[in-house]
Computed example of a mutant assay.
Amino acid sequence: MSDIAHRQDTEGSQPAFTPPKPERLTRATVNLTPKSVRAIKQAADLTGDTRTDIINRSVQIYGEIQQVLSNGGELYVRPEKDADLQQLRIW
């Protein structure tokens, strides 16, 4: 059974969360929107990475982005080689 959560028989109860030990893999089941599935495929086609690697990196990047934003920071991207920087807006 996963360390993330186990389902309880009580209706409306929240699953318990136990942080995984360092360097231990945790299996998770997620429901992806069609847009997310397309984004994973696009990333895999561009990088050759596995879906697992893409999802792991995505979660880590999301955490870093949220840290920057919560500290009042901003993110900028250069969409093409010679383009100007543009502020990246995260919804």
Rank of each mutant, 00 (worst) to 15 (best):
36 S>C: 10
22 P>T: 06
27 R>V: 07
29 T>F: 01
13 S>P: 00
40 I>W: 01
83 A>K: 09
5 A>S: 13
25 L>S: 15
29 T>V: 12
86 Q>A: 13
7 R>S: 13
77 V>L: 11
22 P>S: 07
31 N>R: 11
50 T>G: 06
9 D>E: 10
36 S>K: 05
31 N>M: 12
52 T>W: 01
33 T>C: 09
19 P>F: 08
61 I>P: 00
76 Y>S: 12
70 S>L: 03
3 D>P: 08
61 I>C: 06
73 G>M: 09
16 A>E: 08
50 T>M: 05
90 I>L: 15
16 A>P: 00
71 N>W: 03
21 K>D: 11
57 R>E: 04
77 V>Y: 05
4 I>A: 10
43 A>C: 10
78 R>G: 03
2 S>Y: 02
88 L>W: 09
64 E>K: 08
35 K>F: 02
71 N>K: 11
46 L>C: 04
24 R>C: 14
64 E>R: 07
71 N>H: 11
32 L>V: 03
54 I>P: 00
51 R>A: 10
29 T>K: 03
76 Y>G: 07
66 Q>K: 09
60 Q>A: 15
59 V>S: 14
81 K>T: 15
64 E>V: 04
42 Q>N: 04
91 W>K: 09
9 D>M: 11
90 I>V: 15
25 L>T: 09
72 G>W: 01
55 I>G: 00
48 G>I: 10
45 D>P: 00
58 S>D: 00
39 A>I: 03
36 S>H: 08
23 E>F: 02
30 V>M: 13
10 T>A: 10
48 G>K: 02
11 E>F: 03
67 Q>D: 14
3 D>Y: 09
57 R>G: 03
34 P>S: 11
59 V>F: 06
23 E>N: 12
83 A>N: 09
86 Q>W: 08
8 Q>W: 05
88 L>N: 05
